[in-house]
C-alpha cells in the first residue's frame, strides 16, 4: 500500500495521479478517517478557488487606462524615436547655427577688408564683384564649418545616445 503524502493528495485533486493511484487513495480514504479529513480539507479550498479563479474587473478600466496612455503617448512615449522623426529641435538649432555662422563669416570678412582697405566705403571696390569675394574669409569659413559640425555632433549624441538612455532610466525608476 502506498504511503500517501499531502503531495499525493494535491496531485489527486489536480487529476495528476494514475487510475491505479486514484483507486488506492480512495480505498485508503475509506479506511483512514484522518486521511479522508485531510483530503476533504484540501478539496474544499481547491473547489473554492476553482469557483473563483478570475474576478471581474471594472468595464471602465480600459477607458481610464487608454485616457492616461493617450496622454502619455502625447509625451512621445511611443512616437518613433529616430533622428529625423522629431526634427523641430534639430531644425531650429540648424537654422540658428547657419544664420550665426553666415553673419560671422560676413562680418569677419568685412572687418578684415577694412584693415586692408582703410577707406573702404569711399572706394569703388564696393561696386565690384570682388568685394563679395574679399568679404568671405576662408579662415572664418573653416572655423564656422567646424562649429556647425560640432553642434550637429552634439545633437546626434543627444538624440541617439543621451536622450534614449535617460528616458529608459527614468522609466525604470518609475518617473514620468
Amino acid at each position: 500500500m502506498t504511503q500517501f503524502t499531502e503531495e499525493h493528495i494535491l496531485n489527486y485533486l489536480d487529476q495528476a495521479l494514475t487510475a491505479q493511484e486514484i483507486a488506492e487513495l480512495e480505498q485508503e480514504m475509506q479506511n483512514d478517517p484522518e486521511l479522508k479529513t485531510t483530503v476533504e480539507q484540501l478539496r474544499t479550498s481547491h473547489v473554492y478557488f476553482l469557483e473563483n479563479q478570475v474576478e471581474a474587473g471594472s468595464e471602465q478600466l480600459a477607458d481610464h487606462v487608454m485616457a492616461e496612455v493617450t496622454e502619455l503617448s502625447r509625451k512621445e512615449y511611443y512616437r518613433p524615436t529616430g533622428l529625423f522623426n522629431n526634427t523641430s529641435f534639430l531644425l531650429t538649432a540648424g537654422i540658428l547655427t547657419a544664420v550665426v555662422a553666415f553673419l560671422s563669416v560676413i562680418n569677419a570678412g568685412y572687418f578684415d577688408l577694412q584693415i586692408l582697405v582703410p577707406n573702404l566705403t569711399e572706394t569703388s571696390i564696393l561696386k565690384e564683384w570682388t568685394f563679395l569675394k574679399a568679404m568671405i574669409s576662408k579662415r572664418i569659413l573653416t572655423n564656422s564649418m567646424l562649429v556647425i559640425y560640432g553642434v550637429l555632433a552634439l545633437a546626434l549624441v543627444d538624440r541617439l545616445i543621451l536622450n534614449p538612455m535617460f528616458r529608459k532610466r527614468a522609466r525604470n525608476l518609475g518617473f514620468n
Partner: peptide, 22 residues
Amino acid sequence: VRTGQVSAYRTLVERYNDYVYT
C-alpha cells in the same frame, strides 16, 4: 503600439483586465 498605434493597447487591456484585476 510600438509603431505609434496607441489604440491597439486597448485590446490588450480588455483582454487581460480581469486577470490583472484578480
